[in-house]
Design a binder for these strands. Sequence first.
DNA 1: TGTATTATTGTATCTTTGTATGATTGTATA
DNA 2: TATACAATCATACAAAGATACAATAATACA
Lengths: 135, 135
Amino acid sequence: MNIEINFQSHVPIYSQVKDQIRHLINTGELQPGDQLPTVRQLAADLRVNFNTVARAYRQLDDDGIISTQHGRGTFILEPHSQKEAEQLRQLDMQRLTHYYLTEAHRLGFSPEEVRALFEEKFKQWMEDGEPPSEK
Amino acid sequence: MNIEINFQSHVPIYSQVKDQIRHLINTGELQPGDQLPTVRQLAADLRVNFNTVARAYRQLDDDGIISTQHGRGTFILEPHSQKEAEQLRQLDMQRLTHYYLTEAHRLGFSPEEVRALFEEKFKQWMEDGEPPSEK
DNA sequence: TGTATTATTGTATCTTTGTATGATTGTATA
DNA sequence: TATACAATCATACAAAGATACAATAATACA
């Protein structure tokens, strides 16, 4: 399970953790029933206080995405319905877009610049049939 | 770390703080990774309001000199020449765009769907003057 | 098998740290 | 003088960390 925190982004750490776990679920990398790392384990991996991870877990629990169980661990829940799963996927896409725009903004890019770069990469995607990679 | 404010000078305090921190970095007295005093600590030392120090820190953060992190503290970043900084900025933006497109793809969205959502959020950014947030 | 002990896991609470917003002060200028 | 603006301050807030605690699981041992 790969989660990465951007400490320079001003997006709160607990929020980044929440978003990325939801994303891992929506892409199927985390399956219902799977156990998440313990708050201390994940916190150690991310070099973050475990209360910060606990906060993310608690909010995901409140949202009915995962089940945190005192002394036992935390686990991925089943989506309540197919319709809800689709909603979660849409929300994930929204968050992805928000993150893209806010980070671009933080890096000092104007909307027009962002759009230009987006269009460029988008065109490549259309031509190649798959999104551009890191190289 | 020795910073001194000249209260007679008509150079704003936040500006004096900025200049002296930059100087301490340039002379090597502050190294990448070093933690700066907290806004309250430095403010107490200088007998100044902590918001004034926070203002200096925020502007240095905007300039990519330091990294201020809510609840954690503020830290010296690796120094870069103007040219390097610009290259890094472009690279970050490219990576960000790649990440956006590949993750959208992994979520199962078609290029057209991604573009539609991008355009929608982009429009909001233009209207509001700032990128849309989570709420 | 039963029970005590220890380790593991999440929780509650308070402190520390930066952030947001609006009021106050000083200064330049009409 | 009046008004506008920038710098600073006051206050309330939010994110993250430190510490102590509670629930469950794992182990040891009679």
